[in-house]
Design a protein around this nucleic acid. Structure first.
Length: 803
RNA sequence: GCCGGCUUGUCGGAAUUGGCAGACGAGACAGACUCAAAAUCUGUUGGUGGUAACAUCGUGCGGGUUCGACCCCCGCAGCCGGCACCA
């Protein structure tokens, strides 16, 4: 057979064009076929273009999508752009180019790069969060949240980025600095739009039961929501009617309380200002705390600081003991009630604080070491002591009994708390969705009529936030001044915009029906396509994006807009691709690899194969150029098989088992994200052909079909060269026969006292006695003493225990 | 400090989840082809001892459970990631 060396520069564009002409990846309209909705996280189209990290998840889900098509599913595998965001805006500010233009250019670049990688995205369903026809529905969903009371304005201390001049959600503050720009974050009071995600805390926990998320993702969702059950207890302020309410998960330790702590923002301080003798010191402490971010206040291994409130003290309601009250920044106003009871014997933070301030430590759970020397927190099996009516009880029983007592006396009650906080939804920025609300002096905040959606971004002269931190839109008085939809009087539009998370919180719905102008998607489309069957994304989104989008989706379900409670049936995550030095790729480290160069030199199929072969999909992996070369070599060997191909359509008898085993392994590994071992299995099969120096046409075809999802261009070309029917992407996924995956004679390892001493060949259905007899014979000279125990795991191993 | 994850040859990484540790790839070494090199092909390749058969050690460290442990349990160290001292 004539043979030309493999030229990826010809073959890859050729097939990309043919797929386009054939509309090979346009989603089928036949809703009687079983559907499969596979989704990757849509990218933010940054100015840097695609990074080698992007193709890892895209290739993985492309493999799944291509396999599903070959299995006969109607596949929806869409792509879009999460295009609102700060880098674009910052670029616009710097260069005075409209962010719309910047976005358009970046999208064009990304799209070209993705095309060159041969992904089977259905581009007829492309979406862009900055398109008014898209954000019309983002605004519409916000409006529904507003109408149901889940969007509200609140004056509250927020995280304020001194550089971006925007408020950040707690979730967006990383290591005490702004997640996006790295500048210092301080606390500032501002009126913000908030979304009541906390109202959905319980539903968001429950929803995890019905879906298939990778364990660690489900765990981080739960930890983030942070449900805890405990009790609220009222302590009396001595000599006053005033009650100081605390939240505790350890109400069994109430007898061990030796002091109380309130957060620096606690209202009780201002209220009794005049009676606090050391007010100057308290005020100074508060001022210092206000300058710190939550993160700094919670910084590790920090010395406990605080000031005793001289002039106020509290009475422990269970034993009427008088105890001091401190103010300290280790207590946060944003969790619980902003005040705690301190039990130094059994809480390490309280213990540290008590040691620092020389406060008494009273043991109330026995079982640890001396609590004066060491805190005792792991009290699951502990028994209550020094605790009046709780003495002798186990911790769990003591909790129950104490709650009964508190409720009976009216001084406390059981209470469930969540760590989750409401979502700060406003940004004082230009490049985001306008919030479709006006403020009227008479009517307050009013939603604009739905018929006026989309509320489009006005053109502004400068994208720079104003010095007072208001959005640049606030200067557009023509746009800002409007009439109240309620009373017709003068009103002002909201000038804050939505965060980038908004557009990505529902995009999967739009993919189902992207051109619908009547609704975010038709009921028919949603009924058929939702939920997303498999959603893969980065670990960095497992708390923020995932939780926000689940929240919006669950809300829409409650409103009857979507047919299912949860948006994603299965969620997996991929690991990062690191530089060859094992560090994160970054310009400053000089270890960035540009995928364009790899595609140019080695081809898209090689890049795809390498990114899948690089290591376990969910772990980070470091980029090795030698590994890329190895994958190119593999593909070239597959290419060369055409020179040793015979005309037989079937499998040769000596390789039949290997063929069936490989089909089985590759099929299973693609489902469990073990792309690396799937490719290794195909390499091993190829080596078999080369060892024989022959491959039948039937064997070759099967290998090409298995490899096609990973390396679609070269396999398509080879399919044509060897005269396969139609296109390879239209073939059926290879099937295997379970019986043929098992070999008739198997090698059984023989151990003596747990150490390998040899192997024996036996037939697959050999009896235990037969195997043991052979085994003893095989290792006869290696046994000292007599055999006292014989272990045979059928088909696996023999272990002879001798003494 | 808390919560996850990780630690296996020279390197990237496998190991059907308690059953032959090191698949597959890379690198290195040797050979073939070549005037030569590259490419390609073939072979060898965890350490130690031995001509060899083979023996022995070996999955971060220390213990344990088990006929048998990379895998399970207890303790420790190092690295990576996340974090909101959550009472």
């Amino acid at each position: 057979m004539s043979y030309e060396p493999y030229n990826h520069k010809e073959v890859e564009p050729k097939w990309q064009n043919i797929w386009d002409e054939n509309e090979a990846w346009v989603t089928g309209e036949d809703k009687s076929r079983p559907k499969y909705f596979a989704m990757v996280e849509f990218p933010y189209p940054s100015g840097q273009g695609l990074h080698v990290g992007h193709p890892r998840p895209y290739t993985a889900m492309d493999i799944v999508s291509r396999k599903r098509r070959m299995q006969g599913y109607n596949v929806l595998f869409p792509m879009g752009w999460d295009a609102f965001g700060l880098p674009t805006e910052n670029y616009a500010i710097k260069n005075q180019i409209h962010p719309k233009v910047v976005t358009k250019n970046n999208v064009a670049r990304f799209k070209g790069q993705l095309r060159a990688l041969g992904y089977s995205f259905d581009w007829t369903r492309e979406i862009n969060t900055t398109d008014p026809e898209y954000y019309k529905w983002t605004q519409w969903i916000f409006m529904q949240l507003f109408k149901k009371g889940l969007a509200y304005k609140a004056e509250m201390p927020i995280n304020w980025c001194t550089s971006c001049k925007v408020g950040l959600a707690n979730e967006e503050v990383v290591n005490g600095v702004c997640e996006r720009c790295g500048s210092e974050v301080v606390r500032k009071v501002k009126s913000q739009w908030m979304l009541k995600i906390t109202e959905y805390a319980e539903k968001l926990i429950e929803g995890l039961d019905g879906v298939d998320y990778v364990e660690k993702i489900a765990v981080s969702q739960k930890n983030w929501i942070g449900k805890s059950t405990g009790a609220e207890v009222d302590f009396t302020v001595k000599g006053k009617e005033e009650k100081l309410r605390i939240y505790t998960t350890r109400c069994d330790t109430l007898f061990g309380v030796t002091y109380m702590v309130v957060s620096p923002e606690h209202p009780i301080l201002d209220k009794y200002k005049d009676e606090i003798k050391n007010w100057a010191a308290v005020e100074e402490y508060r001022a210092a705390a206000a300058r710190k971010s939550d993160f700094e206040r919670s910084e590790l291994a920090k010395e406990k600081t605080g000031v005793v409130i001289d002039g106020l003290s509290a009475i422990n309601p269970v034993n009427d003991k008088e105890i001091p009250i401190f103010v300290s920044d280790y207590v946060l106003m944003s969790y619980g009630t902003g005040a705690i009871m301190a039990v130094p014997a059994h809480d390490s933070r309280d213990w540290d604080f008590a040691k620092a301030f020389n406060l008494p430590i009273i043991e109330v759970v026995a079982g640890g070491k001396d609590v004066q020397e060491e805190v005792y927190t792991d009290v699951a099996d502990g028994i209550l002591v020094n605790s009046g009516f709780l003495d002798g009880l186990k911790v769990a029983d003591a909790k129950k009994k104490m709650i009964e007592f508190l409720e009976e006396k009216g001084i406390g009650q059981a209470k469930t708390n969540y760590k989750l906080r409401d979502w700060v939804f406003s940004r004082q920025r230009y490049w985001g969705e306008p919030i479709p609300i006006v403020k009227c002096d008479k009517c307050g905040y009013v939603a604009i009529p739905e018929s006026e959606l989309p509320l489009q971004l006005p053109e502004v002269e400068s994208y720079m936030p104003t010095d007072d931190g208001e959005s640049p839109i606030s200067k557009m008085t023509d746009w800002v001044n409007t009439t109240c939809p309620c009373c017709g009087g003068p009103a002002k539009r909201e000038t804050d915009t939505m965060p980038q998370w908004a557009g990505s919180s529902w995009y999967f719905l739009r993919y189902c029906d992207p051109h619908n102008s009547e609704a975010l998607a038709s009921k028919e489309a949603l009924d058929y396509w939702m939920p997303v069957d498999w959603y893969n994304g980065g670990m960095e989104h497992t708390t923020l994006h995932l939780l926000y989008s689940r929240f919006w989706h669950r809300f829409l379900y409650d409103q009857g807009v979507v047919p299912c409670k949860e948006p994603y049936q299965r969620r997996t995550s991929h690991g990062m691709i690191l530089g060859s030095n094992g560090e994160k790729m970054s310009k400053s480290r000089g270890n960035v690899v540009n995928p364009d160069e790899i595609v140019d030199e080695f081809g898209a199929d090689t890049l795809r194969t390498y990114e899948m072969f690089i290591g376990a999909f969910d772990l980070s992996a470091s980029w090795q150029e030698d590994g890329v070369r190895g994958c190119r070599r593999f593909l070239e060997k597959v290419w060369k098989l055409q020179t040793i191909m015979t005309d037989e359509e079937g499998y040769s008898s000596d390789l039949e088992g290997a063929m069936h085993r490989t089909i089985k392994k590759v099929s299973a590994d693609f489902e469990t994200l073990k792309f690396n071992t799937a490719i290794a299995a195909m390499m091993a099969l190829l080596n078999e052909f080369n060892r024989k120096n022959a491959v039948t046409k039937g064997e070759y075809k099967t290998l090409l079909c298995l490899l096609n999802p990973v390396a679609p261009h070269i396999t398509e070309e080879l399919w044509q060269i060897i005269g396969g029917e139609g296109y390879i992407y239209q073939q059926k996924w290879p099937e295997y026969d379970e019986d043929k995956t098992v070999e008739n004679t198997i090698e059984i390892p023989i151990q003596v006292n747990g150490k390998m001493r040899g192997t024996v060949s036996v037939s697959r259905d050999a009896s235990k006695d037969e195997v043991l007899a052979k085994a003893k014979e095989a290792v006869a000279g290696k046994i000292t003493g007599s055999i006292i125990k014989e272990i045979y795991v059928p088909g696996k191993i023999v272990n002879l225990v001798a003494k």
